[in-house]
Design a protein around this nucleic acid. Structure first.
Length: 119
RNA sequence: CAGGUUGGCCGGGUGAUCGCUCUCCUGCCUGAGCAGGGGGGAGGAAAGUCCGCCCUCCACAGGGUACGGUGCUGGCUAACGGCCAGGCGGGGUAACCCGACGGCAAGUGCCACAGAGAAGUGUAUUGCCCCAUGCGCGAGCAUGGAGCGAGGGUGAAACGGCGGUGUAAGAGACCACCGGCGCGGGCAGUGAUGUUCGCGGCCAGGCAAACCCCACCGGGAGCAAGGCCAAGCAGGCGCAUUGGGGCGACCCGUCCCACAAAAAGCGCCGGGUCGGCUGCUUGAGCUUGUAGGUAACUACAAGCCCAGAUAGAUGAUCACCCACGACAGAAGGCGGCUUACAGGCCGGCCUGGACA
RNA sequence: GCCCCAUUCGUCUAGAGGCCCAGGACGUAGCCCUCUCAAGGCUAAAACAGGGGUUCGAUUCCCCUAUGGGGCA
C-alpha cells in the first residue's frame, strides 16, 4: 500500500475516535469518516493484547493485504481505521477478507455484490 | 551397540503471479513525483534490559566523604560482572561439571527449639572419684562436702585425634606422633599456590548473598540524547555590599553570568509546540590466507559492502519435495551475559557390554 | 525505545531470618439462635508468583524467569 494512502497523523486517529462512525464485528472494529480528499486513507490498530510482535505483524500484514485488494472497489473520499480484536489472530486470510467485505458493505463504502448496483 | 559428557554448525527449500521499502541507471518533468529495468531487504537469540563501551549533551570532570559495583592468580580486550589458561575447594567410577573463591586471632551483631553450655575463664537433677556421718556381716545404699571434665545426652554446629606419663578419679596438666593455626626461612612458579625446614602456643566454632574492614572501579543523563527548519503562543517575577547559577547526594574547590541607563544574559513560574530534515549506518565490520601465542586473541595481506523503516517495510495466492517447519521481528551502533527453542548435521572424550 | 515499581487465602492487607503447621477484615461452607430470613455467636477450609543459590534454617537475603502496573515526547 502506497504511503499516500496511509493514515499517519496521530491527530487523525484522535479525531476518528470522536467523530467517526463505528461498525463492529467479533474479529475487528471499523471506523469511517469523510476526509474531503479524492482518495481514501487507511490505518490499522493492532494492540499489544493481540500477542507478541510476530503475531501482531502477521495480523497487520493480512489486514493490509485484504484492504489492498478491496481498495479499487471502494468509494473514494474516506478515512478508514481498522482495529483488530483477539479472534482475528487465528483466522485464515479468506475469512478476514469476507468479514471486511461484509462490514464495508454495511458502512456503504462498497456496493454489495448480491444486490447489484443499488447505490 | 547402549548410556553419558563436551565443542561447533543449520534454523525449510524451489518456481510463478500480484504487492511493500531502500538504492542505482534510463526516460518524462521546473520540482514533488511517475514509468521501465537491475540490485539489497530481520535473528541466533533481533528478546530480557543484567553488565561494559562508542556516540551526544550537561560552562572539562580536581580532592575528600557518602552511595553503588566488583572480589583466587596471570593474561586477552576499547571495556566488562565477559573470555582463555592456571591454582584451590566441592560433586561424579570417569570424561567432565560447578564455585559472589579477600577478611570473623579490627570491632559490633545473630546462632530459634533442644541442651549444663551457642563463644571464652563457662556448667551439674546424669556420671567418675575421695572424705565425713548414718544404715548394713558384706558388696553397697542414703545424705552432706570437696575435686573432675573422661563417659552418656541435646543440637545443623559442643572448645583437636590416637597412644602414653600422671592421678583418689581425671584433664594439653605433661610428652611423642598426626591434623590444624601463627611467625620466619629454603626450593619450584611471573603469581595464586605447592612442597619442605625451624620456632611458638596448646587449638583459635559458624554466618560477611549480617553491619562492617580492605583492595580496585564508577561524574550525570540518555538517540524521546543532540543539531537544524517550519508553524504557533502571553507574558510575569528575581539577579550588589556581592548576588544568581552549573559541576544532579554533601563539603572543599572550581567555573559561568551580572556588575545597575537600556538591551542582552542566567534562574523560576506560566503559555505554546503533537509537522519535517538530520543523527542513521563503513564499522572495535565480514570472508579467506599467512605468522605469533597452549588458548582467549593479535598482527599483516588480499577481496567484499551486507536492512535502514518512521502508524513503522518480508505479505497474499498457487504448485512440488521432505524430516510437515520451534522460539520468535531490527528502530543509533557494538562486545558479552541470561532466558526461550520443533528438529537435524558434524567432531572429540568417558563408562559399560559384545565380537575380533 | 529508555527508566522504575510491585506480586502473601476468592478480595484487601500484616509479617522484615527461627518465636507463627504465616495473623486480621470482608467473603464461602457447616452448626447454634429464630416460625423463616437478616443480624449475632461458635467452628472449618483457604495463600507466601515459579525456579535456582547463600544459610543449620528463607515469605524475608541474592540471581534468573513469568505476570501486572507506572513515568519520560
Amino acid at each position: 500500500m502506497e504511503s499516500r494512502y496511509r493514515l499517519r497523523n496521530s491527530r487523525d486517529f484522535e479525531q476518528m475516535r470522536q467523530q467517526g462512525r463505528t461498525f463492529s464485528r467479533p474479529s475487528l472494529l471499523l471506523n469511517v469518516r469523510a476526509n474531503g480528499l479524492d482518495y481514501n486513507r487507511y490505518g490499522f490498530v493492532v494492540g499489544k493484547r493481540l500477542g507478541t510482535a510476530v503475531t501482531r505483524n502477521r495480523i497487520r500484514r493480512r489486514l493490509r493485504e485484504a484492504m489492498r485488494r478491496l481498495h479499487p472497489q471502494l468509494h473514494p473520499g474516506y478515512d478508514v481505521v481498522i482495529i483488530a480484536r483477539p479472534p482475528v489472530g487465528g483466522a485464515v486470510f479468506s475469512s478476514i477478507l469476507d468479514v471486511l467485505k461484509d462490514v464495508l458493505c454495511q458502512a456503504k463504502l462498497k456496493d454489495s455484490q448480491e444486490r447489484g448496483a443499488e447505490e
